[in-house]
């Protein structure tokens, strides 16, 4: 797997962060995954994934503007790093290679 090793859920989170672009913060990421992929995401699992992705430097985070509804507490926004983008591309190309290798007969399930 090499230096771009990434888990399935991590990949989903990383992609979602990329999808949300400027608006990628915890709860938005969770909700987006839930909506788009129709799967339940636990806050804990999501946080763990984010933390790990940040550690692998696929992601960086920074605080946004403070707002009153959070009592002056600022949101943490996530951004995909170029390194992260590479990792995603690597996953994509790996997948692509595999797809191309499938003989057309393989899906003939009749």
């Amino acid at each position: 797997m090499g230096k771009y090793a990434i888990g399935e859920f991590e990949e989903v989170v990383l992609l979602t962060v990329a999808v949300l672009y400027e608006n990628a913060y915890g709860i938005a990421i969770k909700e987006d995954i839930e909506q788009r992929l129709k799967r339940k995401v636990s806050v804990g699992a999501m946080r763990t994934a984010l933390k790990r992705l940040e550690k692998k430097e696929f992601l960086t985070s920074e605080f946004g503007e403070a707002t009153a509804v959070r009592g002056g507490k600022r949101k943490r926004y996530f951004k995909v790093t170029p390194y992260g983008k590479k990792a995603l591309e690597k996953v994509m190309s790996d997948r692509q290679k595999l797809w191309e290798a499938i003989p057309s007969m393989a899906f003939d399930f009749k």
Partner: peptide, 13 residues
């Protein structure tokens, strides 16, 4: 609690 969550990929909450 957070450590346990991290260690267990969020499985132990």
């Amino acid at each position: 609690i957070k450590n346990v969550e991290n260690l267990s990929d969020g499985e132990l909450s």
